[in-house]
Simulated assay, not measured.
Amino acid sequence: MYHFCMALVQVDAVSKNYPRRAGLRTESDTVVEDISFEIVTGETLGLVGESGSGKTTVARMILGLVQPSSGSIRVEGIDIAKASKYQLKALRRQMQPVFQDPYAALNPRMKVFDIITEPWAIHGIDTGTSAGRHDNRSTLLRIRASELLREVGLDDSALLRHPHEFSGGQRQRINIARALALRPRLLILDEPVSALDVSVGAQIINLLRSLQRDHGLTYLFISHSMPLVRYLSTRIAVMEHGQLIEIGEAVQLCAQPREAYTRKLLAATPELPIGAA
């Protein structure tokens, strides 16, 4: 069990609006409206709501891919919107996404070895290979990539294969390995199993739980499935139509939800066959 000590992410009164043409006028669509929460080091915050509730927009704002229209988002105390290029690059090493579609997330022309080692090249990470001959460097990179694959339940025979040779669950494991390459503190998991069969998704959820235990990771886990969120999360935040309507400890919130919408989410999705990790 984790002992939480500090907020890794602080979202303070954040809204996001997009312009929309209405005849000759330009109006504004509010996607996220005045939400505040924090993600504490070592926890899993589950962000749950139906499609269109604003969950993915929140994730993209935390990653710095979308700027808030108002409010602030701080990661490790640094305001994402005001961060320098150097600060933003350093923060992005600490925050890695795992997206919904394991088929679209991997470059089909790249081999798994290149996919997994690409983050080190992009961020200029010294993996202990900077010194020595080229053949030694290649060997060390292969060793590091093989270690990442083993962490997610794959062996090094995958390194020289292309994404189309793998099942959906295996591709998501490769995505997770790539996300772990930079040893981030925070993984943003945006519907990571919604495109997978139920039994395969359950395996991925158990893998994520195991990785969190082994590496002390912090998760923002986004899903429309309350049973998934309840299983993996320490706390749960419920979004409806861009607003954060309820947040609390996972066990208490699921046992005694305050809002009718939360009760609707609990009743709408069946339990999933997830065993203890």
Rank of each mutant, 00 (worst) to 15 (best):
L88A: 07
A7C: 09
F113T: 02
R263N: 08
A59D: 10
A121I: 05
L154P: 02
H215F: 15
V11R: 04
Q243L: 03
T262Q: 04
D79N: 10
V229R: 05
I78F: 02
I247A: 13
T218E: 08
G169M: 07
V98I: 07
L244Q: 08
G52Y: 09
H241K: 13
R263G: 14
M95R: 02
G242R: 01
P270G: 04
D34N: 10
G52Q: 10
L159W: 12
V75K: 04
S130I: 01
A276F: 10
T41F: 07
E165A: 15
P257W: 11
D34K: 06
T57C: 13
L228D: 08
M95D: 00
Q10T: 10
G49N: 07
E33C: 00
R142I: 05
L180C: 13
Q94E: 13
S69C: 05
G128L: 09
I116M: 03
R230I: 03
V238N: 07
A267M: 06
E147G: 09
D155L: 08
V31L: 13
Q243K: 15
I62P: 05
Q256R: 14
T56H: 15
T30W: 03
F37H: 10
T218M: 12
A59T: 08
R60M: 14
M226G: 02
L265Y: 03
I204G: 09
L180Q: 11
L160A: 09
L106G: 13
L244R: 12
A105S: 15
L272C: 15
D29S: 14
H162K: 15
A250Y: 01
L211T: 12
T26S: 12
F37R: 10
K55C: 07
V32F: 04
V112T: 13
S28C: 09
E33L: 00
L160T: 09
V40G: 04
S233P: 06
V14F: 03
R185C: 02
V11Y: 01
C5Q: 13
S72N: 09
G23F: 05
I39P: 05
P192C: 09
D214I: 08
K111W: 06
P227S: 12
L8D: 02
Y86N: 11
Q212R: 14
Y103R: 11
A22E: 12
A83H: 10
S146I: 00
